[in-house]
């Protein structure tokens, strides 16, 4: 079955001006697709541009260059208010910090219903509250919680409120920017299970941004690895962990401590040094497919080596 592309990111660039004439290339020409119903994991270390990518996709930032196509429609570029509203409804975001992403002066009901109000999805007050109650139950909270304020909830519960708010407008696509990093281990599992359940029931598509690689592997179908604004490798989650090709991916994977003392005792850490590629001048780096569905940023010469190694 041909998979349907929900989101196409084409040569996306996001540069920030810092001071006079200085430019930070936070995202520097990345290209990838996200298929309908899948979870795409985006990993990398702080400052690699993974959050910026997420924020640029949903147009919290204007892209410097490149395109983001959502269902074939460009998200960026000139848009009427109506078009924007339509896009905003289909794409939602869940944030890292459940303490900072909810307005402390709004009740849970108003936080969740804000999207419903903006998009006029409920005709009467009763219908609006009915939706809020349903959403609360969907995310494992109960209707008594509707009139409380965010400070009355624990971190895990707040993250559930954040998820309910994202679901309120019945989106197709959710960008989750480190949704579990701020939570305790036992609570992380609750939230991840909830996200998986919602995906099954509602056919959601996720972009899951995180630095916790074991959780990313667990939740994602495909994973992209970012390094200094570029995507260096993209593959199926299993494949990426089994056969990492780019030396940075290898280094990253070798650095995750696993909850298993035996493997830890024998761990060999690989260190990545960008100069190890020994690119010649004028050599062009491209995102090339080594084995079906497994892409690596490499030069022509490296491409040949990788192919002979992994074919």
């Amino acid at each position: 079955m041909a998979r349907q592309k929900l989101l196409e990111v084409k040569n996306l660039k996001q540069y920030f001006q810092v001071g006079r004439g200085k430019v930070v290339k936070a995202v520097d020409g990345i290209t990838f697709d996200i298929y309908k119903g899948e979870t795409f994991g985006l990993v990398g270390e702080s400052g690699c541009g993974k959050s910026t990518t997420g924020r640029t996709i949903i147009r919290l930032y204007e892209a410097t260059e490149g395109e983001v196509l959502f269902n074939g429609v460009n998200v960026h570029g000139k848009k009427s208010k109506k078009e924007l509203k339509e896009l905003n409804r289909k794409m939602q975001m869940i944030f890292q910090d459940p303490y900072a992403s909810l307005n402390p002066r709004m009740t849970v009901a108003d936080i969740i219903a804000e999207g419903i109000d903006i998009h006029g999805l409920a005709k009467t007050k009763e219908e609006r509250m009915q939706r809020v109650y349903e959403l609360l139950e969907t995310v494992g909270l109960n209707r008594e919680h509707a009139n409380r304020y965010p400070h009355e909830f624990s971190g895990g519960q707040r993250q559930r409120i954040g998820i309910a708010r994202a679901l309120a407008v019945e989106p197709e696509f959710i960008i989750a920017d480190e949704p579990i990093s701020a939570l305790d281990v036992s609570i992380q599992a609750q939230v991840v299970n909830l996200m998986k359940k919602l995906q099954r029931e509602k056919g959601l598509t996720y972009l899951f941004i995180a630095h916790d690689l074991s959780m990313v592997k667990y939740i994602s179908d495909r994973i992209g690895v970012m390094y200094f604004g570029k995507m260096v490798e993209l593959a199926d989650a299993e494949e990426l962990y089994r056969n990492p090709i780019h030396p940075y991916t290898k280094a990253l994977l070798s650095a995750i401590p696993l909850p298993d003392p035996e493997t830890e005792r024998t761990r060999k850490r690989i260190i990545y040094d960008p100069s190890q590629h020994q690119y010649k001048e004028g050599e062009e780096l491209e995102f090339r497919e080594i084995t079906p569905g497994h892409f690596v940023l490499c030069s022509e010469a490296e491409y040949k080596t990788y192919q002979s190694m992994y074919k």
Binding site: V185, S186, I187, Q188, A189, Q190, V192, N193, K196, S214, M215, K217, Y218, A237, E238, Y241, L258, P259, D260
Partner: peptide, 14 residues
């Protein structure tokens, strides 16, 4: 509740 790298399809124990 920690996903081990080789259990993929099971629901996480929470």
């Amino acid at each position: 509740s920690m996903p081990s790298l080789d259990h993929k399809d099971m629901e996480l124990y929470s």
